[in-house]
Amino acid sequence: MSDKPPAEPPSSEVTPETLYLRRREFLKNAGLFAGTAAAMAGGLYLLGRKQTRPMDAFVPDAGLVELPVAKAHGPYDTDEARTPYEDVTTYNNFYEFGFDKNDPARHAHTLRPRPWTVAIDGEVHKPQTVDIDQLTSWFPLEERVYRMRCVEAWSMVIPWLGFPLGELLKRVEPTSHAKYVTFTTLLDPERMPGQRRGTLDWPYVEGLRLDEAMHPLTLMAVGLYGRQLPNQNGAPLRLVVPWKYGFKGIKSIVRISLTREQPFTTWSLAAPDEYGFYANVNPAVSHPRWSQASERRIGELERRPTLPFNGYAEQVAHLYAGLDLRRNY
């Protein structure tokens, strides 16, 4: 080991003091720049993350039982491309679980759709309360590939699984006084946390005229894509009326009541000038805040024109003969 100190570098290689200090300042400023830029981007990200956060942690069909399909490819099926299962099950309006489109997929695990009973009452000769699985076993399940048009001007194509509501109604024998069918969603803020907020008048209520309810297109759905309904799509039982805006398709039904009077439905109470009782898809009648003339099919970039009665005019237009559809929106 040498006692000799290491040779000093030649003075030409020594960093001048001013430059040395500027380098330190540069490093400090670079650090502050990076920190501030990251804080700015991070702050904006936190504010906007609800809209863009990914759904990759979500497993859509965990535990959903495959259902036997007795009938498929019926006369009402559309042959348009089906909306992918992931989109159908992660882009939902179900305010009982939150207001953002992916909130229901995130939060609806609290619903617990079994055991579940459905009360069928009002103007019927055979009122009854029945377990959901028993009710489902009464009917051969049909697959129906329907267009679904939301009042917000987007649409999907969904292969539902269910049975015609008319078959259920015939079974309980409506009285001659029955003019309307009123549907009610579960009221349970423990299982539907969104009901703790008074955004809408809970529970959600929807209704149909009896002739609409008896129409063969009107479906009680218990599944989609061959399996039980995921919670966020309205498990275990929901209404599907393909010629009406999606909000008519009430989810997680606990009561079906036949009534003499037209029921007060949830959205038509919340905003009567925006949402009517009929809510038939109608490109000629704008929502007060946006046009209904066109729609975006989920998964497509370009808008497509919206069809009268969502393309089911041939089947259902006669139900509304003589009715002013501008006034009865």
């Binding site: 670079a30 502050l32 920190g35 501030t36 990251a38 700015m40 981007a41 904006l44």
Partner: peptide, 15 residues
């Protein structure tokens, strides 16, 4: 604070 405005611009445009 020479870094302040450039940092806000970069961070603000990142999203």
């Amino acid at each position: 604070y020479p870094w302040l405005n450039p940092a806000l611009t970069v961070g603000g445009l990142a999203p």
